[in-house]
Amino acid sequence: LHIEINVNGLRIELHNVSEELAERIREILEKVDDREEARRLAEELIK
C-alpha cells in the first residue's frame, strides 16, 4: 500500500503501511508546529 500524506506543507510518502498507521502518523505530525521537526519525527516513525 502506498499512501501520501500532507502535513503543514510537508509531503510524506509511506510505503507498505496500513491506512490506520498512516492516519496515526498524520495525526501525530499535525501536532508538531516546526516543519523540520515534523520531518525528523516522520523519519523516526517509519523506520
Rank of each mutant, 00 (worst) to 15 (best):
L1Q: 12
L1K: 11
L1P: 12
L1E: 09
L1I: 14
H2Y: 05
H2N: 13
H2C: 14
H2M: 14
H2S: 13
H2Q: 08
I3V: 12
I3D: 03
E4W: 11
E4F: 11
E4N: 12
E4R: 02
E4K: 05
E4L: 14
E4H: 11
I5V: 08
I5L: 12
I5Q: 01
I5N: 02
I5A: 02
I5R: 00
I5F: 07
I5H: 02
I5T: 02
N6H: 13
N6A: 08
N6D: 14
N6G: 05
N6F: 07
N6C: 09
V7Q: 06
V7L: 09
V7D: 03
V7F: 11
V7I: 14
V7E: 05
N8M: 02
N8L: 02
N8P: 06
N8D: 09
N8C: 09
N8G: 12
N8V: 04
G9E: 03
G9C: 01
G9S: 02
G9V: 01
G9M: 00
G9K: 01
G9Y: 01
L10F: 14
L10S: 05
L10D: 05
L10I: 15
L10A: 02
R11I: 15
R11T: 14
R11F: 13
R11Q: 09
R11L: 14
R11E: 06
R11A: 10
I12H: 02
I12F: 15
I12T: 02
I12Q: 01
I12V: 11
I12A: 02
E13Q: 09
E13W: 13
E13C: 08
E13T: 12
E13D: 10
E13G: 02
E13R: 04
E13K: 04
L14K: 00
L14A: 06
L14C: 05
L14V: 08
H15C: 11
H15Y: 11
H15E: 07
N16V: 06
N16Q: 06
N16G: 14
N16R: 03
N16A: 07
N16P: 03
N16W: 09
N16L: 08
V17P: 05
V17Y: 08
V17H: 04
V17N: 03
V17M: 10
S18R: 04
S18I: 03
S18A: 06
S18P: 12
S18T: 15
S18E: 05
S18W: 05
E19Q: 15
E19P: 14
E19C: 10
E19H: 15
E19S: 13
E19K: 14
E20A: 12
E20G: 07
E20K: 08
E20Y: 12
E20D: 12
L21E: 08
L21K: 02
L21G: 02
L21W: 08
L21M: 12
L21N: 03
L21S: 04
A22M: 12
A22L: 11
A22S: 05
A22W: 10
A22H: 04
A22D: 01
E23Y: 09
E23L: 11
E23K: 12
E23V: 10
E23A: 13
E23S: 10
E23Q: 13
R24E: 07
R24D: 03
R24S: 09
R24V: 10
R24W: 08
R24L: 11
R24M: 12
R24K: 14
R24I: 12
R24A: 13
R24C: 04
I25K: 00
I25F: 05
I25Y: 03
I25W: 04
I25G: 00
I25A: 01
I25E: 00
I25L: 09
I25V: 13
I25N: 00
I25H: 00
R26Q: 08
R26Y: 10
R26V: 08
R26C: 03
R26M: 10
R26D: 01
R26E: 03
E27Q: 11
E27I: 08
E27T: 07
E27L: 14
E27F: 08
E27K: 10
E27S: 07
E27N: 11
I28G: 01
I28K: 03
I28E: 03
I28S: 03
I28Y: 04
L29N: 01
L29W: 06
L29C: 01
L29Y: 14
E30W: 11
E30I: 12
E30V: 11
E30Y: 09
E30H: 09
K31C: 07
K31V: 08
K31G: 14
K31I: 09
K31P: 02
V32W: 08
V32Y: 13
V32G: 06
V32C: 03
V32L: 10
V32H: 10
V32P: 02
D33H: 15
D33L: 15
D33F: 13
D33S: 14
D34K: 02
D34G: 05
D34R: 02
D34L: 03
D34Q: 03
D34T: 04
R35T: 11
R35M: 15
R35E: 13
R35Y: 15
R35Q: 14
E36D: 14
E36V: 08
E36W: 05
E36T: 07
E36H: 08
E37R: 05
E37D: 07
E37Y: 06
E37L: 11
E37I: 07
E37A: 09
E37P: 00
E37T: 10
E37S: 04
E37N: 04
A38S: 04
A38M: 11
A38Q: 08
A38I: 09
A38H: 01
R39K: 14
R39P: 01
R39H: 10
R39E: 07
R39L: 15
R39A: 13
R40F: 06
R40M: 09
R40E: 06
R40L: 11
R40A: 09
R40G: 03
R40C: 04
R40Q: 10
L41Q: 12
L41Y: 04
L41K: 06
L41H: 03
L41C: 03
L41W: 06
L41P: 00
A42K: 01
A42D: 00
A42P: 00
A42G: 02
A42T: 10
A42M: 15
E43G: 04
E43W: 13
E43V: 11
E43S: 06
E43F: 13
E43N: 09
E43R: 04
E44N: 06
E44T: 05
E44A: 10
E44L: 09
E44G: 04
E44F: 08
E44R: 02
L45H: 02
L45W: 06
L45V: 09
L45R: 00
I46H: 02
I46G: 02
I46N: 02
I46E: 02
I46W: 07
I46V: 12
I46Y: 09
K47C: 04
K47P: 03
K47W: 11
K47T: 14
K47A: 15
K47F: 13
K47H: 14
